[in-house]
């Protein structure tokens, strides 16, 4: 009996039809494709996206620069006496990141001792493409603090 069954299997291509049945069932299932860019998925809360800085909270400890595995954070600060309070405080001159080489590992965020963090990656932004290459190589302090999510191409006029 099993020899006959095997012969029929082979003649009638039943093993191949079993595979086709799997594909056929998928024809009637809900598709899981997300039609980007009209539909977008929202990243998770912990998603490591573009970096953002808050220089008011920053205490200029430079732990983030020390912990960066690629040494791409450049920090300069100096001491100044605040005329109002008379206390000495640190002033941030420069907080630049060589974003071309950043691998968004999040070690700078982990190192930051302030609560909430002064540098963070949980900005849920991964769309960093631009039309001009030179925009994306090196990010200065002002840009880190104030970048806006670039509008998607469907919003603005395409040149």
């Amino acid at each position: 009996m099993s020899a006959l069954k095997q012969f029929l299997d082979r003649l009638l291509l039943l093993d191949l039809f079993a595979g086709l049945a799997v594909t056929g069932r998928h024809l009637f299932r809900r598709k899981v494709t997300v039609q980007y860019p009209e539909q977008r998925l929202e990243p998770a809360d912990r998603f490591r996206g573009m970096l953002r800085l808050d220089s008011e909270r920053c205490i200029k400890c430079t732990l983030c620069a020390r912990d960066c595995p690629l040494d791409i954070i450049y920090i300069d600060w100096h001491q100044e006496t605040n005329p109002e309070t008379g206390k000495k405080e640190k002033v941030l001159d420069r907080f630049d990141i060589d974003i071309q080489r950043c691998m968004f590992c999040g070690l700078c965020e982990e190192a930051c001792p302030t609560e909430p963090k002064s540098i963070w990656l949980t900005t849920k932004t991964y769309e960093l493409a631009s039309y001009d290459r030179w925009q994306n190589l090196y990010v200065t302090m002002e840009q880190l603090e104030s970048w806006r999510v670039r509008p998607s191409y469907t919003d603005e006029e395409v040149a």
Partner: peptide, 24 residues
């Protein structure tokens, strides 16, 4: 993975001594 450590492919999800984050 993204919900746990923030990245999908290059996870950076462990540290010597334990885990950096707890499960969300």
């Amino acid at each position: 993975f993204e919900q746990y450590c923030g990245a999908r492919l290059t996870l950076n999800s462990m540290r010597p001594g334990g885990q950096p984050y707890d499960l969300p």
